[in-house]
């Protein structure tokens, strides 16, 4: 779905991305992690052509981003930003979703059908004024308007920052659902627990270079690697690493309880 070949990006003389190459397969759920300033947001913006590489090439769904307009790529790509207020520009929830659909499809009746379907799916009230909703609700509206267009690729730039736990889970469950239906997801995130729970692959970015790209369970256990990106493993994983002997594979609370029980039985 996405293919980076020796991509570098620099702006006003500063290198942000250094010679990054990777491939993301269709249908995967990849998390992009790293400290602030590592270039995560830049990398996400290179994926849909908002930024064009200084050297190297990026191809998305078969298009070279340097050769096609971003609005063309947007027809099959959704991008959820951290701040929903930069997208919302209509006075009602329904109009906001319609506007998103109008950008990517032309058939008027189809737009109407999809709009109503989306309202129902996300249990949104179409007549509400987006600006009277809470930040979490607005983020959900923006996600809904993006998903209404049924994108094949979903890019998320710290989608849950500033949200409370419940809102965060709401957003992530929606994302997970479209991923299961076949959409490819690339998510920039700081929250290692969200990464652990939802992503199947992880890329670690540090100072513009790709440090690692692999399966989630391998990466989140690699403490030295995470430390280089100033991150810590999620709690249970860290606990498992510290405990060693027989606990190494515990990832979730359930795993941990099982391991403890097994240990006690073994001791008896």
């Amino acid at each position: 779905m996405i293919c980076f070949e020796n991509v570098s990006y620099s702006t006003s003389g500063i290198d942000i991305i250094n010679n990054v190459s990777f491939k993301l397969k269709k249908g995967c759920f990849t998390a992009l992690i790293g400290a602030n300033g590592a270039g995560k947001s830049t990398l996400a913006r290179l994926c849909n052509g908002l930024l064009k590489p200084t050297s190297g090439s990026v191809s998305v769904g078969g298009f070279d981003t340097a050769l096609v307009r971003t609005s063309r790529i947007a027809k099959f790509t959704g991008f959820l930003f951290q701040n929903p207020d930069r997208q919302i520009c209509k006075n009602s929830v329904r109009d906001e979703i319609r506007f998103s659909l109008e950008c990517v499809i032309e058939d008027k009746t189809e737009i109407g059908i999809r709009c109503e379907k989306t309202l129902q799916e996300f249990s949104l009230n179409g007549d509400r004024d987006p600006f009277s909703m809470s930040r979490g609700e607005r983020q959900r509206l923006v996600l809904a308007s993006i998903l209404a267009a049924e994108p094949e690729l979903l890019l998320l730039d710290e989608p849950t920052t500033g949200l409370d736990y419940r809102e965060c889970m709401h957003i992530m469950e929606c994302v997970s659902r479209v991923n299961k239906k076949g959409a490819t997801v690339l998510m920039v995130s700081h929250d290692m627990e969200v990464v652990q729970d939802f992503a199947s692959e992880v890329m670690v970015l540090n100072d513009g270079s790709l440090l690692a790209h692999g399966r989630t369970k391998d990466i989140i256990r690699n403490e030295p690697l995470l430390a280089r990106a100033s991150l810590l493993p999620p709690q249970i994983t860290e606990l498992a690493i510290r405990l060693g002997g027989g606990y190494e594979n515990a990832v979730t609370v359930d795993d941990m309880v099982l391991s403890v029980k097994k240990h006690i039985r073994g001791a008896e």
Binding site: D164, Y165, Q235, L239, V253, D254, V257, V260
Partner: peptide, 14 residues
């Protein structure tokens, strides 16, 4: 609507 650290959840479960 507030999550607990997972080690707390673990303690609860145990």
């Amino acid at each position: 609507g507030v999550n607990c650290p997972r080690v707390v959840t673990l303690a609860d479960r145990l």
